[in-house]
Design a protein around this nucleic acid. Structure first.
Lengths: 209, 209, 209, 209
DNA sequence: AATGAATGAGTTTTCATTCAT
DNA sequence: TATGAATGAAAACTCATTCAT
């Protein structure tokens, strides 16, 4: 179920969803390129021709997975933006969503991390991703405006630092190079927040390189 | 020239190197999958059959690019480890090497950033990459032992945060979503160091999530 | 039509059969190795991709030709085994089937004779061939038990002598080194039977080498 | 050593012979088509380029093996023709040479049986083979003239029967479907002679089919 | 909606052969 | 003689996509 990432599952299991979920599993197992359309159809239990009733191409399948997932993330980030929390709490919220996705739906994360995030298929980072970055940037900028974060760093750059940190940890889990027990996942969240928000704290300002 | 990444160019231009360099250019231009073996041979000015004299397959070509590049990075990280600098200065050194690679050899960075997924898929993150991570981890752990960094975070996890931040910024440049003027490159270095090392500073210790 | 060898043609002409028949013609014309998959597809009037819908490889095509042909031969040999004829008459029946195949379907015989080596190389002589040999052996052994043939020779060895004689004659025809008019074909049958069955006659027993 | 077939080894081991012998071993092991020129060169311990000093092509290598072997066989058959033996003894001599070759040089027989005998490379049966057949035919015809063999069968056809029987037995040994202990080899010789010469005996004449 | 037979463009790889040294 | 780097023709096979049913 795609939407488990942010837990917005609708429960409806039509053929389209069947195919999409099968695609996630197959892509996770063999990688996008090594996955044949027939594999996905077989996994979904339908004829491979049917796939083309719902999706224009194999590529669109991947892009759809991508887009739908990020739409959820985007919604979640927006919801966080609308809370009354501190910037630090907001970033912690985002970290929690992304890192806990690994527990919720490892296959999906596997696909997103391995195939999409830096994919050259989806030539330009899909719009949704950019908007998630923009959300992060706004959270950070607001933190600066509110005097919570030091104002002398570019919030856009910091959003890259923050997102990159999260993604690298997910990658470590995907590739099995980082332990991913419940404790480690919690520790990961805390470390990222401690380090990044610690580094953004006001009294750190103007430290000479 | 592969070795420009860390400036260890030997000047020798044998056929093997010729092919490797051509591959970097072609992969950078069209992406690994869209690059035909014939394109690479043509770019190198040799018959495509010769390619198989030096490399087992198109895939081994990519793997070699990864391996050789990371071997250079690894050497550079080791050299940094052997200096008398502070942990912060050492991390700054690593950041400088990785981020300035974008200026030195954008094609190479383009390939490395865009095809990481393939390298890690095909051959689970080359050993050299792991060792570079281990170097980062040692630098951080030493910083903790020396009382420069707070001791309550897992150095391994922090190495992921640090490396992820750098990689994401490179990705931003590769995808054209982040400005990459000389100023911005310098700013990127400073921001990463400020934020991460700031967050690792001693007085940040034990801040509640 | 493959089955013309023993005249069991069903008349159904599905694509699979179309391809198989085309393969026989093309292999007969150019030899297995010199035949390109595209040639066969063209001869069959289908796209070459379709070939892989029905057969795993070019090799499986040849193997199938062998297997199906020998299955027919096997059936015919079994039918002969079930008659009330003398051993000599039974062997004559087998000789007739194999030698007259040259008239019925020269292309098929051409392929079988010229590519035996490949069939036996790739897949150690199809099971069907072995069973046909076993049938011959049983016919001969029965002839010995019934007192028709001398009992002091190994029936297995004799089946090789008998089959080898037939195959060599077919080879002579295929290579154009032996005349193959109707008369000669009849003479070949008679000669093989005369010589082999003559040599197996009871009063020949125990002749010193 | 090629010439072991009829034991005419000269003892000289020049590079040409080295390559030829290596080729026999490699062809025997992997089959002609699967054998690469490089394999043969490696087996011979020379650079593969050298092969082209002695032979025009890979094909000529096979043809040479073929031709040289059959020249030996041909000489042996001629020697037999010049003896004072009976036709039966002469045929026994030929059978002995061919069947015992399996013991002397199994690799060579393997190659001859699997790659050449019905090969489509050597489109036309090499002249030497034809001459060996002709020798057999003369022996048989002489047997008929001398009143040793029945005159009512075509000697040419009988030479095919005789040779085919021998070749099929060799094939059985090559493919491992026939036991090839010393006893069995002797039995094979005896069986072939008993059956074929028995069938050619005078009193068998005119038996109705 | 659903099927799966049919299509055919597209590319890596192999390997015999050549040739400069 | 001897080497092995260099060449390039040649072909099997894959698989996304279409479409008649």
């Amino acid at each position: 179920m795609l939407s488990t990432l942010t837990d917005r599952s609708t429960g409806q299991e039509d053929k389209r969803r069947l195919i999409l979920d099968a695609a996630v599993r197959v892509f996770a197992r063999k990688g996008y390129h090594a996955s044949r359309v027939g594999d996905i159809a077989e996994e979904a239990g339908v004829a491979h021709g049917l796939l083309y009733h719902y999706f224009r191409s194999k590529d669109e399948l991947l892009e759809t997975i991508f887009r739908e997932t990020w739409r959820d993330v985007l919604d979640a980030v927006r919801a966080i933006e609308e809370t009354d929390e501190s910037a630090r709490e907001r970033l912690a919220g985002v970290a929690k969503i992304l890192l806990r996705a690994w527990r919720r739906d490892p296959d999906l994360v596997r696909v997103l991390v391995r195939e999409v995030t830096r994919s050259s298929h989806v030539q330009r980072r899909v719009e949704e991703i950019d908007q998630a970055f923009a959300g992060l940037e706004r959270i950070i900028a607001r933190g600066q405006e509110d005097g919570e974060f030091r104002p002398d760093v570019d919030p856009r750059m910091v959003s890259y630092v923050f997102y990159g940190a999260l993604e690298e940890i997910l990658t470590g889990w995907v590739l099995g190079q980082l332990e991913d027990g419940d404790e480690q996942i919690a520790a990961a969240e805390q470390t990222v927040i401690e380090v990044v928000c610690g580094g953004l704290a006001l009294d750190r300002e103007a430290a000479p390189l």
